[in-house]
């Protein structure tokens, strides 16, 4: 069935357009800055949408948070970045302004919101996403506390306000209404002279795309001077790391959320 007939059919439905994949070319895109990856995503992530990031293992939480922050830093939309976290996340350490500045992020753009529990995080998150003057909202949550309804609420609010919403989840993969779902792992960096650790590198795997794009894995490193991700040299990373990133710990549920 061609797209014209599909849209004619969709127009008949009370909920117009739900049949069509949400990949409309005109919408704002948030790209990684690495051409190969952005091309596969049709220009990048949808800016006015909800995206999920899962760490590949508990130890990759910092890498996932870094990818979320760097993506937020790349977002061209003016306004603050709001990072919401429950009190329990304090165990992961406090965000360090000098480190963010060293990656090329402006720490003054970041607003931290700490909430006593997951419900309060989601409530505050919903308020933040609904506020059109915000650029990016990052929610650091545990998977258990966030159900399908909560993610759908966030996704709808993001689509309405245009705020890029990044859900940093931890724990088991749960159904959600997110536009994309990524798995993030730290990857070995390009060694500098004297075997010093190089620029931060990440192994990203697209686990699910709402528009139906096939999943893929890529190795990216952060290029501070360009303020963009760049494809990393796969020869640097031993095969183990790529393997770990490519294979999710448990198969993603096949259930189509929403």
């Amino acid at each position: 069935m061609n797209r014209a007939r599909l849209s004619a059919l969709a127009a008949l439905l009370p909920d117009k357009g739900r049949l069509l994949p949400p990949a409309d070319a005109g919408a704002a895109r948030l790209g990684f800055g690495a051409d190969t990856v952005d091309a596969r995503l049709g220009g990048g992530l949808a800016a006015a949408a909800l995206h999920e990031l899962y760490p590949a293992a508990a130890g990759d939480a910092t890498a996932a948070a870094a990818v979320a922050l760097l993506l937020a830093g790349r977002n061209a939309r003016p306004g603050p970045i709001i990072w919401l976290r429950p009190d329990r996340a304090a165990r992961q350490g406090r965000p360090y302004g000098l480190g963010l500045a060293a990656l090329g992020l402006d720490p003054a753009r970041l607003l931290l919101v700490q909430a006593p529990d997951m419900l309060a995080v989601l409530r505050a998150g919903a308020d933040a996403v609904a506020c059109g003057a915000v650029a990016t909202v990052i929610l650091e949550v545990e998977s258990k506390g966030v159900d399908l309804t909560a993610t759908r609420r966030l996704a709808l609010a993001a689509a309405r306000s245009g705020v890029t919403t990044l859900l940093l989840r931890s724990g088991e993969i749960a159904p959600s209404a997110a536009d994309t779902r990524w798995q993030v792992a730290a990857a070995p960096s390009r060694p500098l002279p004297a075997n010093a650790p190089g620029p931060p590198a990440f192994a990203l795997t697209l686990l699910r795309h709402r528009g139906g794009l096939p999943g893929f894995s890529c190795l990216l490193e952060w290029d501070r001077d360009r303020a963009a991700f760049a494809a990393a040299d796969p020869r640097v990373a031993p095969a183990v790391a790529a393997e770990r990133a490519a294979v999710p710990r448990r198969p993603a549920p096949r259930r189509r959320a929403a």
């Binding site: 360090y96 960096s189 190089g198």
Partner: peptide, 9 residues
């Protein structure tokens, strides 16, 4: 040159 300070302390 890579960042010399961590993002989380």
């Amino acid at each position: 040159e890579p960042a010399e300070r961590p993002i989380r302390l």
